[in-house]
């Protein structure tokens, strides 16, 4: 069986700064994998290497069996099948919500306007912002914007989804709506790689939790193990800081 994602000896340098120091990791089809770790641990960079928003310095990345780090691969074609959701939403502010979800369907997948609109409305309804089709992104709350961003990615019928701290820029009371949508996606069997600080979500939804620190994977296993009974001191220290910030 081909892995949904496979990383082999992945290295990434920014100048002299080595952010990823040799990552080996796999995500199986249908799995939800949450990557946790302190800021600066390289978890966002890892995620961005999967769809080559960052070019790895060394090592290989395979997505659904295709080596995306191969220079001969058409990266635009690969990215069509990888949905990505950003911390800052990155909706296109000059387009309505509906246009945001339609534009890549039309321009990249070559769907007709009518087909793109039907699919866009389906996905906007699914994430609970179907009533906001004609609004501009600037008129929506952060939680609504992020759900539009998820609908925009889903409308491309991706084989897997990458989430880069999807709730970190949200007001606390808006986090729940976004997590609910993500939970629903997980239940439907979507393959998801999620960089997050939401420990509750990781514990309940993830099939595996990966703890990263200093550019390496420190611990990788089921949430009950990594969050419940961490083996490594670094994992324990991080979880203690996150779960008991007042101490």
């Amino acid at each position: 069986m081909t892995h949904a994602i496979q990383l082999q000896d992945l290295h990434k340098h920014f100048g002299k700064n080595e952010v990823l120091k040799g990552i080996d990791m796999t995500v199986e089809p249908g799995q939800v994998v949450c990557v946790i770790g302190p800021s600066g641990s390289g978890k966002s960079t890892l995620l961005r290497c999967v769809n080559l928003l960052e070019q790895p310095t060394r090592g290989k990345v395979f997505v659904q069996g295709v080596e995306v780090t191969d220079p001969d691969v058409d990266i635009d074609a690969v990215r069509r099948h990888i949905g990505m959701v950003f911390q800052q939403f990155n909706l296109f502010p000059h387009m309505t919500v509906l246009q945001n979800v339609m534009i890549a369907q039309q321009r990249v997948l070559g769907r007709s306007k009518r087909e793109a609109e039907v699919i866009a409305r389906e996905n906007l309804d699914k994430v609970g912002v179907g009533a906001k089709c004609d609004a501009l992104p600037g008129q929506l709350s952060g939680g609504q914007q992020q759900r539009v961003a998820i609908a925009r990615a889903l409308a491309m019928s991706p084989g897997l989804m990458l989430f880069d701290e999807p709730t970190s820029a949200l007001d606390p009371e808006l986090v729940g709506d976004v997590l609910t949508v993500m939970r629903k996606l997980a239940e439907e069997g979507m393959t998801m790689l999620v960089v997050t600080h939401e420990m509750g979500f990781a514990r309940e939804v993830a099939d595996r939790v990966v703890f990263m620190d200093g550019g390496v994977v420190v611990e990788d296993g089921p949430p009950a193990q990594v969050i419940g009974e961490p083996k490594q001191d670094r994992t324990r220290a991080f979880l203690h800081r996150v779960l008991h910030p007042e101490d």
Binding site: N51, L53, D76, A77, R79, R80, I82, G83, M84, F86, Q88, N90, L91, F92, A104, R107, V108, L109, A149, R152, A153, M156
Partner: peptide, 17 residues
């Protein structure tokens, strides 16, 4: 913002598109 290009590219658009 740079994130605009990243969002467009991650939807499969070419740099020119």
């Amino acid at each position: 913002p740079k994130g605009q290009v990243e969002a467009a590219r991650s939807l499969g658009m070419s740099a020119t598109r």
